[in-house]
Design a binder for these strands. Structure first.
Length: 832
DNA sequence: AGCACGCCGACT
DNA sequence: GTCGGCGTGCTC
């Protein structure tokens, strides 16, 4: 399949793009439409369109085309001068318009091809993740009521289907739904829709795809000398302000700066003092920070930097630096010469919203050559940043997972910070790619070095670096010889035996008291959000469960007097906590498992003087919330930060001297084969937040299993010991990085149908893949039902060098019925 | 994948 | 006749 796709992709040199318009009349398009997706043989189907009047379409452009009665996005693959034989010219329709051109730099197609084939999806799906949202949008046919045309009470005379459609439309104030939605809601909607249109009560229309577009704004340019004699004093003032800002400003900015109005400026434009013109204003998010300079490096940092700078293109190196060892400074100094040489750098981080500190440091060093790119940006911001990347200017892009597809024409370096982090793997949408894997391909294709940085490298990266020790860089010490925090393990069983029923051990309690006295700061790590993981009736044991998923509902209670809510952490269903047990009407409930809200509340009652900020996905939902909460904490407006996993990333605050882990067991208790690795990484990272300033840090880990080897390894900061033991484990079970996995995830509303499909697929796998693979399952997923869908899985284990089996696996796709969906997760990180 | 089209049984 | 169900084929 790969080969065929390669021949499809735009491999022609730019000179071949420009056919004379008289010859280049047709274009073959890969359309974002199911028909264009590969069939059983992996054949991509292209549709041929006419190019209207010399529209400058080139291969690689994103265009929009009509398919039947709708409009879809697509990619121009080939410009041709003649139609294929099986097509009549009368059947050929013209393309609608060019949405974006020149979007794919050299070598970029090859990257997308590789993503599509390795992750077992089609090319359009791979292209889609590479583009900003909205570029491949499609139109939809909608039905709109014409209320004025409907006689009063006339629906009584309609047939049932017409009435149903009418009632559904009338239930909404605009009286407007997509035809697809009407079909989904009402069976036999077709007739009703036709009837309504025939009667003239409704009209169907095509809503235009809402493609992102550039924003234009009025700008003001100085066109005279401000001191010219015949200009009034007020006008001179305004011109001076304009002049002092370089002679060019946005109209809105000048209005504010000069405290003037549009009317005055219009007058000045008429007199010819200034020129007003529409200009594109890029929506790039910018933060103003003070400029900084390169810091002096420690000897270890200097060695690492020198090795990075000597790294040949296409090679990767692992920068293994303990928490607080100054990896960011190395990144900054490695990037500086890249920018100088006119090339760009790509920095990938796990979750950008949570690491404002890192972004700020890059901006302080490189100013407006830094752009951020991640999903929290608005569509407009994303679109503009994406186009800014295409410009080819030397720049630094800091982004999350999807930024690995940043269309930078002259890429000089890729850095993956916190490379072990699981958020680099896409899990919800297809393709289920891992940004580290894609980064490895991209660095080879673009012939630029790849730096993987982490304090707790993934087993994959560790093993690769062991195979090539030249490309392993170690920073074993913190900068300024600061020691790593001491780690104390507290056995919570003993606390209970000793009569301490609080969430806080005696040790943690006294450490928190100490924080208050010494005016230092602490963070408390909790593995779950919410208040309690479940609520149970004290007399009958009833536990509220989610009606759509096979899980109990979490209890949410944020503050005194707040509504008590039960919420499903899988599908977000929520309802009020009942006052009485629905089974036995008892008013008494017991709360199990403590989350961030409960820890926050208990802190409040046991340490009323401590000021607490809660930092979890509930309090950081809005765009600027993470930055605001963190800067409040950094400014000393709170003493304790209580939070989940998010705390483990990039938090660097000198006054944090204490880290408390409320219950380490919540992490360990997972059936997943990666549970130990994840727990070690998370705990090591969170412990590493302490003691980055003058005062030595201290960590207290509360657990019910103090003897667990992972907990021990965290205590002794023994990465290597942990990794070696874990690698042996994995090898004995043929789990990654020894051997590879593919997980087939099946889901559907009909449990029996999903189960049946799963068993059919498992048999097909055995037939197609034979004895070269081990096929485990089918088995129900850990949580069998999520959002009313039943879920089954098949796990395929195979040897490292048998990558070609993925292609063979595609043939089983056709065995899946419509009502069941299949996702092929190549190299899954989690089996949930 | 949807959505047309067309064929066949049940009911005014 | 007409309505409504579902199997089959096409999308430039």
């Amino acid at each position: 399949m790969t080969d065929r796709c390669l021949s499809l992709a735009v491999a022609e040199p730019p000179a071949d793009y420009s056919f004379p318009p008289s010859i280049a009349r047709f274009v073959e398009v890969l359309v974002d439409h199911p028909y264009s997706r590969p069939d059983e043989d992996g054949e991509q189907r292209l549709l041929t369109y006419r190019i209207p009047n010399a529209l400058p379409v080139r291969a690689g452009d994103i265009i929009s085309v009509p398919v039947r009665s709708e409009v879809f996005g697509g990619v121009a693959i080939r410009i041709v001068d003649r139609l294929p034989e099986h097509l009549e010219e009368t059947r050929i329709r013209p393309i609608n318009k060019i949405i974006a051109s020149g979007c794919f730099p050299d070598r970029y197609w090859e990257l997308l091809e590789r993503v599509a084939s390795y992750y077992a999806t089609d090319l359009v799906t791979a292209i889609r993740i590479a583009l900003p949202p909205g570029l491949l949008e499609q139109s939809m046919r909608r039905l709109r009521l014409k209320p004025e045309a409907i006689p009063h009470g006339a629906e009584v005379f309609c047939r049932p289907n017409t009435r149903k459609v009418l009632q559904l439309l009338q239930s909404q104030s605009a009286g407007d739904y997509s035809i697809r939605y009407l079909h989904k809601e009402i069976k036999g909607a077709e007739q009703g829709i036709k009837d309504l249109i025939k009667r003239g009560w409704a009209e169907s229309y095509l809503d235009e795809p809402k493609t992102a577009s550039a924003r234009f704004q009025l700008s003001v340019t100085l066109s005279v000398r401000p001191s010219a004699l015949d200009i009034s004093k007020r006008h001179q003032e305004i011109l001076n302000i304009l002049s002092s800002h370089g002679g060019e400003l946005w109209l809105t900015d000048l209005e504010k700066l000069a405290k003037t109005t549009r009317k005055t400026l219009n007058l000045m434009a008429e007199k010819g003092y200034i020129a007003l013109q529409e200009q594109e204003r890029l929506r790039l998010s910018s933060v103003v920070v003070t400029k900084d300079r390169a810091k002096e490096l420690t000897p270890a940092q200097a060695i690492a930097l020198a090795k990075i700078q000597a790294l040949p293109g296409g090679e990767q190196t692992l920068l293994h630096g303990v928490t607080g060892s100054g990896k960011t400074e190395i990144y900054l100094q490695a990037i500086a010469p890249i920018l100088e040489s006119g090339r760009s750098a790509l920095v990938l981080v796990p979750e950008i919203g949570l690491t404002p500190q890192l972004t700020d440091r890059f901006t302080a060093r490189f100013g407006d050559r830094v752009c951020v790119y991640h999903s929290a940006l608005s569509d407009g911001e994303r679109y503009d940043t994406w186009r800014q990347m295409l410009s080819g200017q030397a720049q630094v892009i800091i982004g999350t997972r999807s930024a690995i597809f940043a269309p930078l024409p002259r890429l000089g370096m890729i850095i993956l910070d916190e490379e072990h982090d699981a958020s680099f793997k896409q899990t919800q949408l297809l393709p289920n790619y891992h940004a580290r894997t894609v980064a490895q391909w991209r660095s080879q294709l673009e012939n630029c070095p790849l730096i993987l940085g982490s304090a707790t490298p993934s087993l994959e990266s560790w093993q690769q670096s062991q195979e090539n020790p030249d490309n392993y860089l170690s920073l074993p010490d913190r900068i300024n010889h600061r020691p790593l925090p001491s780690v104390e393990i507290v056995d919570m069983r003993r606390e209970l035996q000793g009569g301490n029923r609080s969430l806080f051990s005696r040790s943690l309690r006294s450490a928190l008291e100490n924080i208050q006295e010494t005016r230092q700061q602490a963070i408390l790590f909790v593995s779950r959000r919410g208040h309690s993981t479940f609520v149970s009736c004290r007399s009958c044991g009833y536990v509220a469960e989610c009606p759509h998923c096979d899980v109990s509902l979490s209890y949410h209670y944020t503050h005194e007097g707040a509504t008590e809510l039960l919420r499903c952490h899988y599908c977000n269903y929520s309802r009020l906590q009942p006052r009485f047990c629905p089974e036995c009407h008892s008013p008494y409930f017991k709360f199990f498992g403590s989350g961030t809200q409960r820890v926050e509340r208990e802190l409040g009652s046991e340490f009323p003087d401590l000021r607490v900020i809660r930092f979890d996905s509930d309090t950081t939902r809005t765009k600027n919330a993470p930055r605001e909460l963190l800067s409040k904490f950094a400014n000393g407006e709170a003493d304790v930060l209580v939070g989940t996993q998010m705390l483990t990333k990039g938090l660097d605050i000198a006054r944090i001297t204490l880290v408390g882990v409320m219950a380490a067991d919540g992490l360990l208790y997972h059936s997943d084969y990666r549970a130990a690795e994840r727990t070690f990484q998370t705990l090591t990272q969170v412990v590493g937040r302490a003691g980055r300033g003058e005062t030595k840090g201290r960590a207290i880990i509360q657990t019910y299993t103090p003897e667990h080897p992972v907990i021990r390894a965290v205590q002794t900061h023994d990465y290597e010991g942990f990794v070696e033991a874990e690698l042996e484990q994995r090898e004995s079970l043929a789990y990654p990085p020894h051997g590879r996995l593919i997980l087939l995830r099946l889901s559907g509303l009909d449990g029996a149908e999903v189960e049946k499909t799963a068993s059919v697929l498992a048999d097909a796998c055995i037939e197609v893949l034979g004895t070269e693979c081990e096929i485990l399952g089918p088995a129900p997923a850990t949580v069998q039902r999520v959002a009313r869908r039943y879920r089954w899985q098949i796990l395929i284990k195979f040897a490292d060098d048998r990558g070609e089996i993925i292609g063979r696996l595609l043939t089983i796709k056709s065995l899946v019925p419509r009502a069941v969906s299949l996702a092929i997760d190549v190299d899954p990180l989690s089996m949930d």
